[in-house]
Design a protein around this nucleic acid. Structure first.
Lengths: 182, 182
DNA sequence: ATTTATAGTAAGTGATTACTCACTTATGTT
DNA sequence: AACATAAGTGAGTAATCACTTACTATAAAT
């Protein structure tokens, strides 16, 4: 069983991911969490403090999620793992990711440096595989996977499975010789 | 000089694109537009009617924007035009596009069929150019351009110009023979 | 000239908002 | 046992919310 504090965090995450920040009242959160409204302010000072707590928890969660990718050294595996990543996400984590993508529009909560180490890892993989423009390839792939992730969150995995297969094939080692098109 | 009705639409678009729907009060809109709050309800019935009016206006605007692309028949030109599209957008249209992307999270205002004719146009281009998986290539390119568009809206064009050059090169006809990697 | 309709305003309305405060209950600590 | 501290509640609060209403000004239509 969860603590009441955790109940608040879970309920707030669910609501914030479904509606917008100002559309979710503290009253609604309290009812969904089964606690008194005042408790929210005891634990998180104010409504924004609650959102910040959710964001902070999220940063750790993301770091954990990509830790195995960052440990990987085999270039082809790095690409395969990264392409597959959005399809490995459990459905009960969708709320969390929906909120993450929504917050990208708020300068306050968007930290572009969060992806820097992943970006350099992907760049490294493209370098090793002999691509002519590894940095650009990495950026393009990251963008592409981001869009697919959003698509999955909206329509479900099933509708995007063929794209996974397509991309895994497209970025296979065997094609390496063709990338240096100078 | 704009009519007061248009003033409301302009002010609301700007505010809705910057904050979330419930975070923008009708009072704030009225002040920004320089009209009385009541006038909003005279013209648009309620707050949602105002948003709907903005969305409706937007659909036309998008149709207009892609009309030249849909008329194009030369496959390579189709790809070039589509890749360049987000870089052709004027800065004073950024608010409009920001709102469009934000609304993608609201089932109510998101219409996936809106892009169907563009998708088939891009697919056609890839077919003509001899790509092995034209449908998948089209989907991937559309996703990629969508992500880049979001990036531009957040960081400005300058930060993404090298991606434009990279993609134009990557999708050049001369590479066609390499795509059929069966 | 009088009606009709539209554009526009200012001052409201009850409901809801984020947040506070006085208070009670539970959990340790010495 | 006594005491401090944290967890939790429920009834407030002023401010703000979307929206309404009664009203005036303008202008075209009969």
């Amino acid at each position: 069983m969860l603590s009441k504090k955790q109940n608040i965090l879970v309920a707030a995450l669910q609501l914030f991911s479904a509606e917008d920040y100002h559309g979710v009242s503290t009253n609604k959160i309290a009812k969904a969490a089964g606690v008194s409204e005042g408790l929210i302010f005891k634990h998180f000072t104010n409504k924004e403090g609650l959102l910040q707590a959710i964001v902070d928890e999220g940063e750790q969660r993301i770091a954990l999620m990509f830790s195995s990718l960052l440990k990987e050294t085999h270039p082809q595996s790095i690409l395969d793992m990264y392409i597959s990543a959005p399809f490995e996400v459990q459905e009960n984590e969708y709320d969390f990711w929906r909120l993450q993508f929504k917050l990208k529009w708020h300068d306050k909560y968007y930290n572009p440096k969060k992806l820097d180490n992943i970006k350099s890892k992907i760049t490294y993989a493209f370098e090793e595989l002999g691509y002519a423009f590894p940095k650009e390839e990495a950026e393009a792939l990251i963008f592409l996977i981001e869009s697919i992730s959003i698509g999955i969150l909206r329509d479900g995995k099933a509708k995007h499975n063929h794209q996974k297969a397509f991309l895994l094939k497209k970025y296979k080692q065997q094609n390496q010789d063709i990338h240096d098109n100078s």
